[in-house]
Amino acid sequence: MATRTRRSQRRTEALSRERIVEAAVELLDAAGEGGLTFRALTERLATGPGAIYWHVANKSELLDAATDAVVAAALAIEPAESPDAPRGKIRAVALGLFDAIDEHPWLATQLATQLSRSPWGSVTPRIFESIGRQVGAVGVPEGSQFTATSALVHYILGAAGQNAANGRVLGPDVDRGDFLDAVSKAWEELDPDDYPFTRSVADQMREHDDREQFLAGIDLVLAGITALHLPNGQASAPPAT
């Protein structure tokens, strides 16, 4: 009996929580939240459910852990600009999350769920800390840092989530350039009296780059924060894209 217990413990130890979470991310990427079941997980890991339950209590905990692991990896990316420049770090954090949400189709929904359902969990504080420290380093007064950080976080997650949703709607068989060209032509044919602005930017929409446009939005938010909270709008110019 003691020998059987020791063998069971060794198998449980060999199957780490990290490996379980890694396999969960793989299942989520392949089949979405509906495809993440403990049965599928045991098959992928070639183990029994008891070994998994030793580390993870239920699917909700597993989803939280998978989300946290992906976010932690995204936030670990170092900026290409000077590591001492807070604006560069904010941009690096934003791009890390943008690319993670684009790569993992399930992530945007899980982030929205965690921000509203369990803001005390690990994911929300991790994101707020990464942005908030740099907001403080930019020079935003302490009493305004929560609002400024919230504005950046909401823009990052909202814009990144919408970009990822656009890609999923189009599907892998649709050429992005052809799609944007078709939309641009449709905009150009709108009634000039009702849609003068939309017609005027049709060419810009056709040629835009999603990541560059996303970063331009970060710079706009930072410019507004700087103008509102720093004396004479003092701040370094945004790094070149």
Rank of each mutant, 00 (worst) to 15 (best):
R91G: 00
E43R: 15
A100P: 07
R44S: 04
T113K: 14
A31P: 08
S60V: 09
D64C: 06
P49F: 10
R126F: 04
E61K: 12
V71S: 05
P79Y: 11
L107C: 13
L75S: 04
A66W: 06
P105F: 04
D29I: 01
T124F: 15
R126M: 06
L41D: 08
S118V: 04
L27D: 02
I101Q: 05
G88M: 00
V25S: 00
A57N: 06
Y53F: 14
W106H: 02
T37P: 09
A92P: 00
L45V: 09
T47F: 05
L107D: 12
L62W: 02
K89L: 06
T67L: 03
A40R: 15
T67W: 08
R44D: 03
E81A: 10
A76Q: 02
T37C: 11
V56Q: 07
A76N: 01
L75C: 05
A66K: 02
V71K: 10
V71D: 08
A108R: 09
E26R: 14
R17I: 09
A112R: 14
L95H: 01
R126E: 07
R126V: 03
A100S: 05
T37Y: 10
L27R: 03
S118Q: 07
D29P: 02
A80R: 08
A51M: 10
F98D: 08
A65W: 05
D102V: 11
A57E: 12
A40I: 11
V71Y: 11
N58R: 14
A24W: 03
A112P: 00
V70T: 13
V56S: 03
T37L: 12
R19C: 00
K59T: 05
V56C: 07
T124S: 15
V71H: 05
V123P: 11
D68M: 01
W120M: 08
G121T: 12
T67V: 04
V70D: 06
G32F: 12
S116E: 13
A40S: 14
V93C: 11
I127G: 00
A46E: 15
L115M: 13
V21H: 08
E33S: 13
W120D: 13
A92N: 00
E81F: 05
A65R: 12
G88K: 02
A72V: 07
P83E: 07
A94T: 06
A112C: 03
V71T: 12
W106C: 01
L45C: 12
A100M: 01
G96D: 03
V123D: 07
D84R: 06
P49T: 13
A23T: 02
G88T: 02
I52A: 07
A76C: 01
A108S: 15
T124V: 15
V25W: 02
E103N: 14
F38N: 03
L27E: 09
A76D: 09
T109V: 10
G88C: 04
E22F: 05
E43A: 15
V93W: 03
A74Q: 00
A31Q: 15
L115F: 15
A94H: 03
H104A: 04
K59E: 04
A30C: 10
S122Q: 14
L41N: 09
G50L: 08
A51C: 08
T124K: 14
T42Q: 05
